[in-house]
Deep mutational scan, measured.
Amino acid sequence: HTVDVQGVTYHFDNPEEARKFAEEMAKRLGLQVHVKDGRYKVE
């Protein structure tokens, strides 16, 4: 499970961890979480 944050890619084994990380980063950076091709993108 992959999370892209402003061009940096993070990998997680656990989909729940990936989702939480994406939401946390989006909140911290004031950005949105998009799901695209099964990847989380924070932009």
Rank of each mutant, 00 (worst) to 15 (best):
E17F: 08
D4A: 06
H34T: 15
E23P: 00
A26S: 05
H34G: 05
L29H: 05
V8F: 11
M25I: 11
L29R: 02
G7K: 05
L31H: 04
G7L: 05
K36D: 14
L31R: 02
V5Q: 01
K27H: 12
H1L: 08
V3H: 00
D13L: 10
H1E: 06
E23T: 09
G7S: 07
V33H: 02
E23Y: 15
Y10F: 12
V8R: 12
E23M: 11
E24W: 10
D4I: 07
G30N: 08
R19L: 14
V35A: 05
V5L: 08
P15K: 13
A18E: 00
T9C: 07
R19P: 02
D13F: 11
K27M: 12
T9K: 07
V35Y: 15
Q6P: 04
G7I: 02
D4E: 14
E24K: 10
H11F: 13
R19G: 07
R28A: 13
E24F: 12
E17M: 11
V8Y: 12
E23V: 11
A22M: 01
Q32H: 13
D37S: 04
P15G: 14
E24V: 09
K20S: 13
Y10P: 00
M25W: 13
K36Y: 09
T2M: 15
E24D: 13
H34P: 01
Q32F: 10
A18F: 00
N14H: 13
V42N: 02
F12Y: 06
Y10H: 08
G30T: 03
E43G: 14
V5F: 05
F21A: 04
K27L: 12
Y40W: 13
D13R: 09
D4P: 01
V42E: 02
T2Q: 14
R19H: 08
E23G: 07
E17R: 09
V35C: 06
V42F: 04
A22K: 00
E17P: 06
E17I: 09
D13A: 11
E43C: 08
V35T: 06
F21Y: 08
D13G: 11
D37N: 08
Q32E: 10
R39K: 15
V33M: 06
Y40K: 01
G7T: 05
L31P: 00
L29D: 03
N14W: 10
L31A: 10
D37C: 07
Q32D: 06
E24P: 00
E17A: 13
K36W: 08
K27Q: 12
Q6A: 08
L31S: 05
V3C: 05
G38E: 05
G38N: 07
K27D: 11
E43K: 04
P15T: 12
K27I: 10
F12K: 02
G38R: 04
F21C: 04
E16S: 11
V5K: 01
K20N: 13
K27P: 01
H34E: 09
V42T: 02
L31W: 10
D4Q: 08
F21V: 03
R28I: 13
A26N: 01
V8I: 12
Q32W: 07
D4H: 06
G7Y: 05
L29F: 07
G38C: 08
R19W: 10
Y40L: 07
F12C: 05
K36N: 11
V42R: 00
V3N: 00
E24R: 09
M25S: 09
Q32Y: 10
E17W: 07
T2F: 15
V3P: 00
R39P: 03
G30A: 04
V5A: 06
F12E: 00
K41N: 13
G38F: 03
H1W: 11
R28D: 07
F12T: 01
R28E: 11
V42D: 02
E17C: 10
D37Y: 04
E23N: 10
M25P: 00
D4V: 06
A26V: 02
D37K: 04
P15D: 15
A18Q: 05
L31Q: 05
K20T: 14
D13W: 10
E24Q: 10
K27C: 08
K36C: 07
M25C: 07
R19F: 10
G38V: 02
Y40N: 02
H11S: 11
E16W: 10
D37G: 06
V3D: 00
L29S: 03
A18C: 05
R19V: 07
V5I: 08
K41T: 15
Y40V: 03
V33K: 01
Q32P: 06
T2N: 10
Y10G: 01
V42C: 03
R19E: 08
F12W: 04
H1M: 12
M25V: 09
V5S: 05
T9V: 14
D4L: 08
K27R: 13
V5Y: 04
K41H: 15
R28Y: 09
V3K: 00
Y40Q: 02
M25D: 02
L29K: 03
K27V: 09
F12I: 03
F12D: 00
R28N: 08
P15M: 12
V8K: 13
D37H: 05
R39C: 10
R28M: 13
F21H: 04
Q6R: 08
Y10E: 02
H11A: 10
A22P: 00
E17N: 11
V5H: 04
A26T: 02
V5T: 04
A22T: 01
N14A: 13
K41D: 08
Y40G: 01
V33L: 07
H1C: 09
H34L: 10
E23R: 06
V8H: 12
A22C: 05
A18V: 03
K41S: 15
V33T: 03
A18L: 02
A26L: 01
D4F: 08
L29T: 04
V33N: 01
F21L: 03
H34S: 14
K36M: 13
A26F: 01
E24I: 10
Y40C: 04
G38I: 02
V33A: 04
E43S: 08
D37F: 04
E17S: 12
Q6Y: 09
A26H: 01
G38W: 03
E17G: 09
H1V: 10
K41I: 15
Y40P: 04
G30V: 03
R19M: 09
V42G: 02
P15Q: 15
